[in-house]
């Protein structure tokens, strides 16, 4: 499942990131790496982008890009 499958308030653990090379590199540099707990905080009023929280800070990301963040199956 991807991070987009979480509802606001739900948490998960990151499994892997795929897709656009720049995006992957940037997210990884921010500490969005395997095993990191991540929480979906809220959706934008129009449903997109979404705010995710990991390592103590909020990051806005588009759903299209967030799809590439895979979560560990519970």
């Amino acid at each position: 499942m991807s991070i987009c499958d979480l509802k606001p308030g739900q948490c998960g653990y990151i499994q892997s990131i795929s897709g656009n090379k720049k995006l992957v590199k940037r997210l990884m540099a921010l500490g969005c790496i395997e095993g990191t707990p991540v929480k979906v905080k809220l959706y934008a009023p129009l449903g997109d982008p979404i705010i995710i929280n990991f390592r103590g800070f909020d990051l806005a990301i588009r759903k299209k890009d967030a799809m590439n963040i895979q979560l560990r199956e519970a």
Partner: peptide, 9 residues
């Protein structure tokens, strides 16, 4: 194409 978009709040 669109660029990926991430910003810190």
């Amino acid at each position: 194409d669109e660029e990926p978009f991430i910003i810190e709040l």
